[in-house]
Simulated assay, not measured.
Amino acid sequence: MDIFFLDLSKVNEIYLESHLVTEEKKEYISKINPRQRKIQVFYSDVFIKYLMLKKYNLGISEIKIFQDPFGKPYLYQGQYQFNISHSGKYLICGISKNPVGIDIEQMKSENVIRSKDIFWESEYQDIFLTIEKEREIRFFKYWTLKESYLKWLGTGLSESLKSIEFLNIDSRFIKYRLDKKFNESTPSFYSIIFDSDYVLSICGDFMNEKKIRIYEVDKFELNSFFQ
């Protein structure tokens, strides 16, 4: 599995004339303010196309992106599956030959939610009964793990975050318990602190893929592609 990330704080340009942007998307992006949001939407749209063309050597005619009934994007008749997430200054994309779910969140104390509608009792206690300096990290680890699972499943937040209960988020091999209706699925999970104040979590078939590789996409490489 390959993970690619782009630091959007280093990017100032958008290329609406690019052949990778549909006319419908051009019109939508042109109306967006502020500019930073415009940049975020533009690169979220073209990042996977850029990666498929430059990193996986697909032809432009092979890159047809559709959305399933839950809004999850997928490549039509493609050999690769992907998932995208963004938070703060980072845009991140996971690519695999198997289903993948990925979530990145910037850790902000004001976003920590005390709710037993989101967490199982064991998870809630693990977050809120821990020492204060660890609380934020644990909250966002649980949150991103749950989000990555729902994105892997393909349902997004149409399913409850309580459809999965995590049992040991600090272990290399993260254990979990699923809602009965999903108990035939057996994904693996990976979660790390990313750039000191972000949490990145991934859900996928790591047993078959053996390794997770993380790459930064340089803004100069990306910009030269559009010029």
Rank of each mutant, 00 (worst) to 15 (best):
Q79I: 15
K72D: 15
N12Q: 03
I63N: 09
K49D: 10
D205A: 08
T144L: 11
I3W: 04
D2M: 05
E136R: 01
S163H: 03
Y176K: 15
G154I: 02
R213S: 14
E62A: 09
S122F: 03
K210V: 03
L8V: 03
I104R: 07
L178M: 08
Y215D: 12
I127P: 14
S87P: 00
R138K: 15
K55V: 08
M107W: 09
K151M: 11
F166P: 02
I127M: 02
S163V: 15
E123C: 03
Q40F: 06
I95A: 05
L129I: 00
S185P: 04
H86N: 02
K25L: 05
S9C: 10
L20E: 04
W120G: 05
S188I: 02
E17P: 04
I104A: 09
D7K: 00
E134L: 01
S196K: 15
M52I: 14
F139W: 07
E23D: 14
I113S: 11
S87T: 03
I84V: 13
K219M: 00
F70T: 04
I3P: 07
S171I: 08
F82R: 14
D7E: 12
K210I: 10
L75I: 15
K55I: 03
Y142F: 05
H86D: 03
K162T: 06
K211V: 09
L222H: 08
M107S: 00
I104W: 12
L178H: 04
K116A: 07
I65Q: 11
F225R: 00
F42K: 04
I65C: 06
K31E: 12
Q125E: 13
M52P: 01
E209D: 03
V11Q: 08
S122M: 00
E216D: 05
S191G: 01
E134I: 03
I48E: 14
L145F: 15
L200D: 07
Q77D: 15
F189L: 01
Y142E: 07
K49E: 04
L145G: 00
K31S: 14
I164M: 00
Y142V: 01
I95H: 05
P69I: 13
E165S: 00
Y90S: 04
I14W: 01
W152N: 01
I202G: 01
T22W: 01
S224Q: 09
S30C: 09
Y80R: 03
R177A: 12
S224C: 13
L91H: 02
P34F: 06
Q40W: 06
Y190P: 09
T22D: 06
F226I: 08
S160Y: 15
E209F: 06
I113F: 08
Y176N: 10
E134W: 02
H19D: 12
S185T: 14
V112L: 02
E27S: 13
V41S: 12
Q106Y: 11
Y176L: 10
Q77R: 15
C203I: 02
D170Q: 06
S18M: 10
S122N: 07
K219G: 04
E184N: 06
E159V: 13
R114D: 08
S171L: 03
N208D: 08
I95F: 06
Q106H: 14
F82E: 11
L16D: 08
